[in-house]
Design a protein around this nucleic acid. Structure first.
Lengths: 348, 348
DNA sequence: GAGTGAGTGGGCAACGTTTTCCAAGATGTT
DNA sequence: AACATCTTGGAAAACGTTGCCCACTCACTC
């Protein structure tokens, strides 16, 4: 009995195209890359042969000599819709180029990040975009020394890679100022506990916490600073809010360092029998998709993800074109989106 | 002045390893691939040389002859957390293999899907997993003829590729039966309007709608069948619910074909001044992460995404090992997760 | 002691591109 | 008319692996 599937047909190569167009493979290669030294007549002939045969260049073979026209993107967590925004900005900006974007699967932890970045380097990718990595600076510098790299969402400066990030310091101030305007004084914060001193000053979570403290001081509320140190997860928000609600004098507002944290906080608040926003206000950070859903309607800080992505793509293409230009840092301004989880504090 | 970055060091190749271990490149290659014909002594020596030099095989070069140890995954929409579940199942199952997963960026539309699948084939990937593709059968068969392929979330049978899907027909019945048990009779459905007759019978949305109708008939409610035909988006849910609420006799429950549709429906219901679930019940499909958030607490159908992913990975590895084995179809059973958006209908 | 066969290791030709170099013709410049 | 320069096209050598094939060494068997 015959096999059910047809044998895979041999793929059309540059040699077939050259033969069909009666030119050399060099000529075909030049046309493919828009290289110098090819007449319009020849270009047309080659283009036609390519179309007639349905030729597509083999990327693996290309990678052995030149470029692979592939850009690798590493995401820490595919579930966070904010990263999808960045991705859209990226792909929109790269849409009319020859580059193809490929994503590493969400990775949690340094080991996983190293595995993914190495895999991308092994595959001769032309450039890497690392989104909110938690790797050490040493690893980032090493990667950037090997392949053009843009780091998104870390605040450190490097000479080896470009970086794009939101001004998390200002974002935290937006929240604090908004709550103070509403009349709040006891404003608490739930932060992601940074275990690693190596990147303590670079991570967005640390900057947000610092921005919160600075904004509180600027408002003359230094004595009211109150931080629950957990993690940027729903669980972390739940536990953090529980801690804060157990204070002798309860905060009237909670600034969660991320939207997902706010979700956990809402759980704890509901369990404590309190209402949002009548009894306590809650604000998040990231303006994720679900923050806008009507039953949630979470006040949050919007990070212009689309612009972040577009900037990252632009910087990467720049750097691929010139590996030796000095590194650039782009900082974008977040905006506050006020919804229905923040309101004036309850009357005393 | 010197350039700020160090020149990228030449990458260690198999030749360097062979030289360092004083063996041939063939020997190194054999060790790398666990091929036959290498003594333990030699294996150790090569392994040590690899470790000492920090050698990593160049995937592009590998791709020219053998495998690339890369599996491409195509996602229609990175924002849908359900796909993240599938991905977790996939990566967990592939974690201890040599394969690396790379994702195509979310693509909407056939053109984008074709672009991504071609890009993956161009890159000599060893296998493809296509999640909920909307491409034509012809395209899927073509892809599958070129490279081992598993299709997730389409109900058609093919001899060219394996497929994994949930039993959407049964899932729809779970919702209908649950609502009938609560006492509902006027149960409406919001479906994704299928424009393409080519894959009419294969798409999950069509199966869900058919399952809804069949379940209604089985409950003796054939006369109550009421479908709003929009799309699987928040906007679609909003418009669909508006249509349904404008009926002379309003439905007492709405079964949305997807959680995101339910979000839009909740908007329209709130605007109409109705309460959920007191005035009207709402159920979704997919059990996405946000369905579990307390302010939402959406009754939904859970699709065992993790298992879907694991099965897809297993089938793909099988098929890579033997391209000529007959195609397999896996169907998994969904379960209903009851939360707080469904309740008995208001008394007459 | 010749023949057999398994176990090891290596030589070398692919694989499909890019890129360097060179040749030949066309054009311009003195 | 001699020479320099530009344009166009091709030959051939990489790039880093894999896999086919062959050679050699042992031990074992008749």
């Amino acid at each position: 009995m015959d096999t059910p599937v047809a044998p895979p047909p041999r793929r059309v190569t540059i040699v077939d195209v050259a033969h069909h167009a009666q030119v050399s493979t060099t000529a075909v290669s030049k046309v493919l890359r828009n290289a110098y030294g090819v007449s319009p007549k020849m270009r047309d002939r080659v283009r036609q042969a390519i179309a007639e045969l349905g030729y597509r260049p083999n990327t693996a073979a290309r990678g052995m000599r030149g470029q692979t026209y592939t850009i690798g993107v590493m995401l820490p967590n595919i579930r966070n819709p904010f990263f999808a925004e960045i991705l859209d900005g990226l792909t929109d900006h790269l849409a009319d180029t020859d580059y193809q974007v490929l994503l590493g699967p969400g990775c949690n932890g340094r080991e996983a990040e190293a595995k993914v970045t190495h895999a991308m380097i092994d595959r001769s990718m032309d450039g890497l975009i690392l989104i909110a990595p938690i790797s050490t600076r040493a690893h980032l510098d090493h990667v950037a020394a090997t392949v053009p790299t843009v780091v998104v969402g870390r605040h450190g400066r490097s000479r080896a890679y470009d970086s794009v990030a939101d001004d998390d310091f200002a974002g935290a101030a937006l929240v604090v100022d908004h709550l103070v305007d509403l009349g709040h004084r006891r404003i608490a914060h739930i932060e992601h506990h940074e275990t690693d001193r190596d990147c303590l000053a670079e991570m967005p979570n640390a900057i947000r916490a610092a921005g919160y403290q600075q904004a509180m001081r600027a408002q003359g509320l230094a004595d009211e600073i109150d931080i629950a140190s957990t993690s940027y997860t729903q669980e972390g928000g739940y536990l953090g809010a529980q801690q804060l609600l157990a204070r002798p004098v309860r905060p009237t507002a909670i600034f969660a360092g991320a939207d997902i944290v706010a979700m956990g906080a809402l759980d704890a608040i509901a369990e404590a029998g309190l209402r949002v926003p009548q009894d306590i206000s809650v604000a998040g950070y990231d303006n994720t998709t679900f923050a806008a859903f009507r039953p949630i309607s979470l006040t949050s800080v919007d990070q212009a993800g689309h612009q972040i992505g577009a900037n990252a793509a632009r910087l990467l293409l720049d750097r691929i074109a010139d590996r030796h230009r000095p590194a650039a840092q782009v900082r974008l301004s977040p905006t506050l989106v006020v919804r229905r989880t923040t309101a004036p504090p309850p009357a005393l």
